[in-house]
Design a protein around this nucleic acid. Structure first.
Lengths: 333, 333
DNA sequence: TTGAAAGCGCTAACAG
DNA sequence: CTGTTAGCGCTTTCAA
């Protein structure tokens, strides 16, 4: 920078002003272009380290995830986060902790040493978490998860409405007996989607029948078993709402074994709109889309506003944003 | 740091020595623990910015990918890269450029301003690339791609051997007529796997029949069409080697339509060992595993060695590493 | 064994 | 409009 200044015949300050577009510095266009020329000729590139050392801002966000970047699930979270960051000139320092709290701890420490401006703590699926407390040393937002005491802002999908809309998609095609293959694990999605399923039934004045709901682990194999079980009922369902697309895949396999066609004999709705499954199944699977991209984007946006106005939100409760899941229609209903 | 020094009753230098484990500084254990106590009490955390400003090393790698982090494909590349980096105390600054060269350019620029110690340039599938030249300002390695003139080190999967092993898996089960559904796109995998297929036939003294090879775009739908076509041959194959798992998915659908069982009537081998497909298909798909994790790991390892010994490899040709693809046996053969 | 001091590349008062 | 100057928090040479 000193060299640039010398070459342009100005002081370092002037160069800095030009580079940073300082408001009240009214540097004449002629001087500016002289500086830009010098920069060009010297191949000068500002040193972000030094800049950040002074300004105490690194324009970097620490992105902690359990396994998002490395599994086929939820990858769009990162794209959403990155696109939003990129638009504001922020870069993402990403670490997949695998849910290992030792690694989490260490990663946060490393990121704090690098003076990240804030944290995003993201999980592969919607759940309750207790992030290491060090995360609170800078602004932080939780993505696809929340903490019990709501002491950190968060964004999660609206499981209840999602479950309701999925069920309604079946109900408004005239189905009267809709089975629900739910997840066994006690996660928010399991409770929420069940509640949504029940809401939808109520909306259509249909009774809730225990026997039409079964639970299974969220794998194709178990989805298959569950479907077989439901379809062997004395009065079997004509439509199946599956907790996720992987289970729906198993459901397809079960129906094939029973020589039942989708959607003519049994309609199916999934959840996730999983890239390699939903569109590739035959027939294409109608399913609920998790707003991964949007959550990623929102998380960064909110984080940046916290960074920009550190004390504006002082007394308030941290925002807990619940985001809609749209229905994606294909051929299985 | 100054505060720590004061509190421990030593100079800043001493603190720095202790923190960096300087060799010839023989600081007595007693002094050291006094310093560590002070650090603890003050909640002191070193400022990596400042450290790097002095030492000209950021312990950060710029990871450029087209879309790896955001699609279900190849996610393990990142895990491999991260795990290796983590082991050496490096962090990854990741940007998905979507293959957009404007974004690529800008990302490289931003990373260079942040003084990353090196670059990894990775693609979602094996191909030829011409990365922006700015990438060469620091050590760089190509991952799952290479540049025409081989002027940058690279690591890619061994398509030829992969194609050969896949075909052999079929051949050594006694199949005499093995069809190959290849990709239409002129990518290294398409040429390599075809060559491997031919090598395998030759090894088993079988003739290469044009009619047993067809090409299609790498989607389930087109895989289905291709399989239908191959199976309608006067003398149809008893085994099918598919360019990838998504096409194999379509092949399964085709065989189902023809009332042919896998593997009893027709054996199938895929390629990719794609997480949500290969293990979840019914029956499980035997397939070739792309060494994504290993390539990620190797790329970082090689990059770090280039960083550590900048001129050691001067005159030599950059390494072009071709990595094996292991066979994953399931139930489709 | 420890300390003083210079300086990494930049920003931002403050002064002119 | 532009320049002088004092640091930001750390590493490292040199000296004690």
């Amino acid at each position: 920078m000193k060299d640039v200044a010398k070459r342009a015949g100005v002081s370092q300050t002037t160069v800095s002003f030009v580079l940073n577009n300082v408001e009240n510095a009214n540097i004449p266009a002629e001087t500016q272009s002289r500086i830009f020329n010098a920069i060009e000729e010297l191949g000068y590139r500002p040193n972000a380290m030094a800049r950040h050392l002074r300004s105490n801002r690194t324009h970097t966000i620490g992105f902690l995830s359990d396994v998002i970047a490395t599994t086929p699930h939820a990858g769009q979270i990162i794209q959403g986060a990155q696109d939003r960051s990129w638009a504001e000139d922020y870069l993402l320092l990403i670490v997949n902790t695998g849910g290992n709290s030792k690694i989490e701890q260490a990663a946060i420490e490393m990121m704090l040493e690098r003076r990240v401006d804030g944290f995003i703590y993201a999980t592969m699926y919607h759940r309750v978490v207790t992030p290491p407390s060090a995360i609170r040393e800078v602004p932080a937002v939780l993505l696809d998860c929340y903490c019990e005491d709501r002491s950190l802002p968060s964004v999660v999908p609206d499981e209840v409405t999602g479950g309701r809309l999925a069920t309604e998609a079946l109900l408004n095609q005239g189905h009267q007996r809709v089975g629900f293959i739910n997840n066994v694990d006690p996660v928010p999605a399991m409770y929420g989607r069940l509640a949504g399923y029940q809401q939808a039934l109520a909306l259509y004045d249909l009774p809730f029948e225990e026997s039409l709901v079964c639970t299974a682990s969220s794998t194709p194999a178990d989805g298959c078993v569950a479907a077989l079980q439901l379809m062997s009922l004395p009065n079997p369902p004509t439509a199946l709402f599956c907790f996720n697309d992987r289970m729906a895949l198993g459901v397809y396999q079960a129906l094939r074994k029973l020589n039942l066609r989708v959607p003519e004999d049994v309609a199916v709705v999934g959840f996730d709109n999983q890239e390699l499954i939903a569109p590739d199944l035959d027939p294409g699977l109608t399913t609920m889309q998790l707003p991964h991209y949007e959550m990623g984007s929102w998380a960064v946006e909110h984080l940046l506003s916290l960074i920009a106005h550190p004390d504006q939100h002082q007394g308030e409760m941290p925002v807990q944003y619940v985001m809609n899941c749209p229905l994606v229609r294909r051929a299985s209903v």
